[in-house]
Design a protein around this nucleic acid. Structure first.
Lengths: 327, 327
DNA sequence: GGGCTATCTGCTCATTTGGGCGCCATGCGC
DNA sequence: GCGCATGGCGCCCAAATGAGCAGATAGCCC
């Protein structure tokens, strides 16, 4: 009879009869849903277990049986996985962004905040010291935080409110601490100062030294990346035109925690480092989990540069950026 | 951290974070689609293989991963399987019927013919001797036959054309033989005769004895079931009103191969058996594969009775009948 | 604070499973 | 008609897997 099967089948497509279809479906249900073993199924249908295995195999290959992975629609499992594998990350979450959405940049940032809040709720434990940088993504994160283990929260840099919405700049840190019922260490100081001396002096000020002194204890840091352009970087916006152009000519492409990076992730303008109040790359490198928040295609190249620093083992980003990173 | 998971999880639903969702999705893809082993996956994600197993397990349980079995829409895999299991059949195929379809009885019969033709194409081999009873379902089967192994085809009963469409009563046998390029043994004689003597005489006639003599060689028989009512049974339609009522009072409920059955599948009116030209139950019992074609809810009870004879190891029927049989 | 419970975790061992192999029947080209 | 290629089939054996178990840990109730 099986010989006839072959004869009837002809070429590859193997025109299956109703009996075979129904039987295959039954075997698939038995195996995948009822959890029966192939041996049991073979006995039930009076065939060899190898036949069962091959039947299911070809059924999957021919698409008769399909595996559907249902995920909240805002999560992009495929790109998340690709990103994680490609960049060797521990955490990689890509959420879907409607690229064509016109004024949607702010909306994308809000969704980033929600996803990042979910991630923090998931991975932060009581023993963690959570560090938050300052930036629009962090501000979007704040309101979305609803659950958090009782951890300490440390602000990782000063703030330079330039836009009205920045008024609640340190709000995220306070909000995180409130949600987690933990201790908060905000930094009430500008991110960028006129010179290194001022910055050094400020770092020793009470209320600031408490936070800065805890940089080395941070176990999970959430960092944003800025691109070298207006409204895309807190540092860029705080500099003069001449400085902006100067650094651009030096190849500045991205900004991470107040540090400027070129396209290869190397620090340019080390002198700027003196003038900021922010966690350093050396300190960041000792943090077990450093998660990069990056949204918006305008920041795609900057995100790539940031990843090249090797500082990050986690990323939360949108489809657009992910596609750039995977291209 | 896992302890926090539990704390955060709260009750059963386990509100999963994005990281977990994405990771689960990645593991599912690795395991089910890429064919990686759980051990490999465990190594890749830095967890134990047990954790991988449990993650996938709960993902399936919670519906995050779903197995979709795609089948031609006319086939009802679930009921086919249920029928097969419940009645211990080798072949059970249920096709979907639109019950509310008003004049759809004929349409259902046509679909039954198509499905049955597919089944025969699938299971009949060169070595088989295919036996076909006479009835509306068989007539619907004929035109649908397009592929058939080179088998011998034997008609299993005489015909009593009462309706115009019955003119081509033996057409199915000829058609089957033509498609299979095999030998046909039709029976040009009435199914029901006035008395046993006539029937016995006819069975010895040349052209009839060839077919009747081959009843014992049949390896696959296709049988229909009639209900005890007008237009539902070839025998009923051929009897007089008095006889109909007589047999009804004896409990006649179904008609199979010219034999009347009560609700329990027992033969009533054995005297009628003398008057027919049709394969007997004894002969039928020796046929390895006996497939029942039953369509239309009017025949549901009759089908149940027929199955109780234990003659059948296969059935092709529609959803309505299947539901009755499973109720 | 102290046990108790529920849960998660990884382990051992028996079972299940798949890759690769040879066997056999069939179809095909010579 | 006859070898040869092809594909299905089942088996061997090593790898993969699951069931059940024991330890650990945190939450919880008294």
């Amino acid at each position: 009879m099986s010989t006839r099967d072959k004869a009837r089948a002809g070429a590859r497509p193997h025109h299956a009869g109703p009996e075979e279809l129904v039987q295959t479906a039954a075997m698939a249900r038995r195996f995948y849903l009822d959890g029966k073993s192939k041996i049991e199924i073979a006995e039930e249908f009076g065939i060899s277990r190898f036949k069962v295995a091959r039947t299911l195999e070809t059924a999957i290959r021919d698409g008769l049986i399909r595996l559907e992975i249902r995920l909240p629609p805002e999560l992009d499992a495929e790109r998340s996985d690709a990103l994680r594998t490609r960049y060797g990350l521990s955490h990689a979450i890509v959420f879907t962004s409607q690229v064509q959405d016109p004024g949607g940049a702010a909306l994308v940032t809000r969704r980033l905040g929600a996803v990042a809040a979910g991630l923090l709720a998931e991975i932060v434990t009581e023993d963690d010291v959570l560090g938050l940088i300052w930036g629009p993504e962090i501000e979007a994160l704040g309101p979305e935080l609803t659950t958090l283990a009782r951890c300490t929260v440390v602000q990782l840099c000063g703030v330079t409110p330039l836009r009205p919405v920045d008024a609640n700049a340190v709000e995220a840190v306070r909000r995180a601490a409130a949600v987690s019922r933990g201790v908060a260490y905000p930094i009430y100081a500008p991110l960028l100062l006129p010179d290194g001396a001022t910055a050094r002096m400020l770092r020793r000020q009470p209320g600031i030294v408490e936070a800065v002194g805890r940089f080395s204890q941070v176990t999970k840091a959430v960092i944003t990346v800025g691109a070298w352009g207006p409204e895309l970087s807190t540092i860029y916006d705080a500099l003069s035109d001449a400085e902006r152009e100067n650094y651009r000519s030096q190849g500045a492409c991205a900004e991470v925690s107040g540090h400027l990076l070129d396209g290869e992730g190397r620090i340019v303008a080390p002198e700027l480092t003196e003038r900021i109040i922010a966690i350093s790359f050396e300190e960041l490198r000792r943090v077990p989990d450093v998660i990069l928040l990056a949204d918006g295609s305008q920041r795609a190249a900057a995100t790539a540069a940031a990843l090249k620093t090797g500082l990050f083992n986690g990323i939360v980003t949108d489809t657009g950026v992910a596609e750039y990173l995977l291209a």
